[in-house]
Amino acid sequence: MAESVRVNVTVNGESRSSEVEPRLLLVHYLRDTLGLTGTHIGCDTSNCGACTVLMDGESVKSCTVLAVQADGAKVQTIEGMAPAGNGALHPIQEAFWEHHGLQCGYCTPGMIMAAADLLKRNPNPTEEEVRHGLEGNLCRCTGYHNIVKAVMAAAESMRSGEGVPA
């Protein structure tokens, strides 16, 4: 058994500190250690993107990051997207709902986090840029049509300053 390692991570604005096995994947740390089950796992090979979270503001596949690598980092998960308590949604969440950008919902948290990175890099993307920006996330239900539509709509509402700031 490998020696455990202490990690200090700020998750959704809250400081967390845990002793973990070095091989613990960040996604399991979030799900099992911290109980943040909104981040999902859909493959073994960094293809599906269901496990996407933001690490220091950038999207990463948390199944391909060790929890120990997140030491000192700020991590944001789907649970941290909307301000807690008042029922408000992030504009991307709002747009996914409005435009039927999800069906089974399993890829959705990862898709929303990937979209957040995309819109941070490119607040006014073309459809093609949205499609390429989401190439690391697989969805089997929607054919991506309404996801793309939702991200375009979210971009517009974020540009016009409607809804909750990112």
Partner: peptide, 21 residues
């Protein structure tokens, strides 16, 4: 009509098998 299912799913509050412990 917008889906009644979505508020929980877009906020990471769905409850799939792996979420049950």
């Amino acid at each position: 009509m917008k889906r009644k299912e979505d508020p929980r799913l877009i906020t990471g509050r769905g409850n799939y098998v792996d979420d049950i412990s």
